[in-house]
């Protein structure tokens, strides 16, 4: 096993965009994005259930794509864009996905929820009108132990309708 040198190791620094804002952070260089978000930046909205890529609870959007923050070195995030659940709402309002999840029982214990929300957002950014099968597929990397997923699908579908409505009223 590795020898103990962690107490003497120097920290690393990166600058990246977190939820639309530039942040500088210094951290122990062995840390993953998950650890830096939670431990060095106080963004505890992103959860973890395995730290091995096996549950999906740590998903965030990296440059717009859903990835597992437990398997991304923080060192690899310099200059990149990260979106977490903390950055989902805009202008003081919840994102339609958040509203729908809250109203339709899609969050029971709420532990898988942040990662599912950002993953669903990435889906809708790419495909504003996914059908049930596409939603199922897009969320197939996020385990939820509470809901049985069905109310999650319904909430995503409700959000789709709401977003479409908003877009129509804007144009």
């Amino acid at each position: 096993m590795a020898t103990l040198s962690i107490e003497s190791q120097k920290t690393s620094q990166i600058r990246f965009t977190l939820n639309g804002e530039e942040v500088d952070v210094s951290f122990a260089p062995y840390k993953t994005l998950l650890e830096v978000l939670r431990e060095d930046l106080g963004h505890t909205g992103t959860k973890h259930g395995c730290e091995l890529g096996e549950c999906g609870a740590c998903a965030v959007l990296l440059d717009g794509k859903a990835v597992l923050s437990c398997l991304v070195l923080a060192l690899e995030c310099d200059g990149r864009r990260v979106l977490t659940v903390e950055g989902l709402g805009e202008e003081g309002k919840l994102h339609p996905l958040q509203d729908a999840f809250a109203d339709l029982g899609a969050a029971q214990c709420g532990y898988c929820t942040p990662a599912i929300l950002v993953t669903a957002k990435a889906l809708l950014d790419q495909n504003p009108h996914p059908n049930r099968d596409q939603i199922r597929e897009a969320l197939s990397g996020n385990l939820c132990r509470c809901t049985g997923y069905l109310q999650i699908f319904e909430a995503v579908e409700a959000a789709i309708v709401k977003i479409a409505g908003q877009n129509n009223s804007e144009t």
């Binding site: 890529g53 999906g56 794509k65 990835v67 597992l68 398997l71 897009a138 990397g141 996020n142």
Partner: peptide, 9 residues
């Protein structure tokens, strides 16, 4: 392979 998030990586 694996899951959508993993395939992105």
């Amino acid at each position: 392979v694996a899951t959508p998030q993993i395939r992105n990586m």
